[in-house]
Amino acid sequence: MTDLLTVKNIIAGYGNGPAILDGATMTVEPGKVHCIIGPNGAGKSTLLKAICGMLAIREGEVIYKGETINGLRPDQIMRKGIAFVPQERALFPKMTVRENLRMGGFILEDKTELERRVDEVMERFPILKERRAQLAGTMSGGQQQTLAMARTLIVKPEIVMLDEPSLGLAPKIVKEMFDIMNVMAQEGITVLLVEQNAQMGLKQADWGVVLDLGRTLFEGPAKEVLADPRIQELYLGSNKAA
């Protein structure tokens, strides 16, 4: 199958600081869930930021549907079909849930279609419908994460990148986040997941990518990554591997 997105030896860092990504490489196949794992400081979140244009790429290439997208602004990359939900959820705290969902469809020109899609997403996530008039900044962490993830569905992107959606959430809520991710996958959306809990992330994924010190050490089917003894030893902790 043709790759939807290819990351080729990218080098990137913050400002004039040292390179956080130092030759990271990965391939993204359409319709699959990809999980990026690695120790703290490996460059997992940085990789997603580089792909979505929030971080300038110093060297290397990001190719999406055959087109190099390096140097494009985040809004241009988003319009091409790559959505990103960062760790901090990126909501508008003083806007209501409904307004946040509407902003999710900012690129849609047809207002009627936008309202239809907002209603559709609210039907799918009853908590958002229930709290549609509430300010996003006053919701719980789990509700905010639900909103951030559900909001990406308004424009039906090709790729959704999720940066540690489980961060700081109770286990029950984490399961709900993975359920939303699975809904995305069922709808044919390609998912790139960065997850600190590597075992949990890999179990949900089709493809695994292991990063360390800004480089890709290993990538392959998630089951193989999960079973690889070196990976278990290095990143999952051998005694934790079930």
Binding site: R73, P74, A83, P93, K94, M103, G104
Partner: peptide, 21 residues
Amino acid sequence: NAIRATTQNRDAAQLLGVNVN
């Protein structure tokens, strides 16, 4: 709305397709 969104969270606005420049 794009202005309000940019005021509240510039990065988020950009990630939703707003040309913040």
